[in-house]
Simulated scan of single mutants.
Amino acid sequence: MMKTRILMISILAFLASGSMSAQCGIKNTAFKSGEFLFYDLYFNWKFVWVKVGSAGMSTVMSLYDGRQAYRTSLVTRGNNKLDKFFTMRDTLLSYCDTDLSPLYFRKGAREGDRYYVDELWYSYPQGNCHLKQHRINNDGTHKWQESKYQNCIYDMMSIFLRARNFDASKMKKGENIPMPVSDARHLSNSWLKYRGKETFKIEGTNEKYRCLVFSFIEREDGKNHELIRFFVTDDANHIPVRLDMFLSFGSAKAFLKSYKGIRNPMTSRLK
């Protein structure tokens, strides 16, 4: 689920392109190439939390249109228990510039009895954000459209990488951070809400973490809807150790199972 940005031929054009995209970037201090995160997925079934699958996320340095870029992928897979109720096979792919400006996004999703693909290509002409959007519907039809915005626009993956680099020491509890997110169809009116700090213990283990808590909220049909609540480590890594997902068909959770290749010491981990 990713898209492309054209490499400029002349040095002058290349520098201009870099300066235009930089306004949508942020300094990355949270992760490095070679980071891998692994999660267990749970679903609330008749008031009992049942393990229904797994997820893995990787970030590596790669090339995109001839320039260095972070390649991030997220794969979620439901098991047979979930398949009886709702099939979930999602694969997300993203390329971001080294300053985390989004370049390309792709989501291939089998959710229930339907399969679709979303793609976004980003470019930044004259300091604006230009999106080329492509949707492959469940019936195989293709829909293309283009959108232009004066402000920066993100997708489900690039917003995640960006949020990991926020300086929470400058945030106040209850503060809202605008986060416009687009898919291949429309732009959502969405934001992150900072909920403060909590200590979280991963169930079934002795793992405890000091966490920063954020909610991803979207406004639709005149109402605010909390879609995901993140618990991220209160250290320089800002790794999500727990995600609460409020879905149309119920509630799901993801808990960090293991990690490797992290950039900074895990000082939030409590013994």
Rank of each mutant, 00 (worst) to 15 (best):
G66M: 07
M156W: 07
S190R: 00
D244M: 08
N165I: 03
F14A: 15
F200N: 05
E203H: 03
M179Y: 04
S73R: 04
A30T: 01
D40V: 07
S147L: 12
L161E: 02
R67W: 07
Q145H: 10
P265G: 02
S21V: 11
F36S: 13
I217A: 02
D221N: 14
S10C: 05
E218Q: 12
K148P: 02
N176K: 09
T87D: 15
R269I: 06
W144F: 13
K3S: 13
R185F: 07
H130F: 15
M245V: 14
L100F: 08
F246N: 11
R67N: 07
W191H: 08
D83Y: 06
L120D: 09
E35A: 00
K46M: 10
F246A: 07
Y39C: 04
D40L: 05
R242L: 15
S62G: 08
I177V: 11
L212H: 12
Q23K: 15
G174A: 01
K172L: 06
L120C: 09
Y116F: 15
N137E: 15
T91R: 04
R67E: 11
M156F: 12
F214Q: 03
S19F: 13
G222C: 03
S182A: 11
F43K: 00
D113R: 09
V48A: 09
F38P: 00
D235W: 05
S215M: 04
K253T: 15
Y64W: 11
A168I: 00
D234T: 03
W121D: 14
L270W: 08
I262N: 12
L243Y: 05
R162N: 10
S54G: 05
F38H: 13
Y259A: 11
S251F: 13
I11D: 15
S21A: 13
R114D: 15
Q150I: 00
K260T: 14
D244I: 06
S54D: 14
T29H: 12
R110G: 09
P240H: 10
D139F: 05
F249P: 10
V60I: 08
A16R: 12
D234R: 00
G127A: 01
K173P: 00
K260S: 14
L93W: 09
R110Q: 14
